[in-house]
Amino acid sequence: MAKRELQEINAGSMADIAFLLLVFFLVTTTVEMEAGISRTLPVKLDNTKLPPPPPVNARNIFSIQVNSQDALRVENQPILLEELEEKTRDFYLANAVAETNPELAKYNPVSRQTVNAEMTEVMKNIENSTGAFKAVFEGEKRKLEKKLLVLDVVGNSYMEIDKTAVIQLKNNAGTSYGMYIQIQDVLKKVIEDLRREKAEELGWTYSEIDWSKEASEEDQKKAEVLKVLVPERIIESKIK
């Protein structure tokens, strides 16, 4: 039998098919960037089953109020949005080194002795309590463990912003979402700036620290230390 030559397949229209697919994908997909500000909402707890919160001193609350006309009041003084960054920095830094302004957040010295003393107290409470109470004390214990971690890094003692210090954000029902985001943006910027400065103080390069969950153990430790030194505590009240 004579050897038959194999006929070549014409692939000329293959390009057309591929083009068709390409155009389909170009039309149905987007390259839109998804960006945003991440936040974690507070867990809903039954307040009646919890131990009473520690007494809060008015100086440790940085209150931001926004009315329905998007006008700002900080610590009961009307201010402009541009001033918010400086005011927030002041709240964090005014007393960081020495007590200079008795109306802004208090700083307390932390050393191994104070942490250990609190730790024995907390351990006793954990043993003597159950349920929600126990969970709260265990949370306290974790916080103290983090403080020990910070002491390992910074030395024998450091100044810590009061543990009840919070930023309290009160919106009105008519406040616009745009204004709310601008405030969140400023707060986030201030906290990041403060953490960056702290990192430099400790000899770290802030931009090299990986804050994600997959970070190396060393980066996780650094992030943890910065979080303790510059806590981000923002509380929002429900709008009625």
């Binding site: 998804e34 945003g36 500000i37 936040r39 507070p42 867990v43 985001i181 969140q184």
Partner: peptide, 13 residues
């Protein structure tokens, strides 16, 4: 969202 424990949110900007 808090009621159903969906606590992680992102304000898209």
């Amino acid at each position: 969202l808090r009621d159903v424990d969906a606590l992680k949110i992102v304000y898209s900007t």
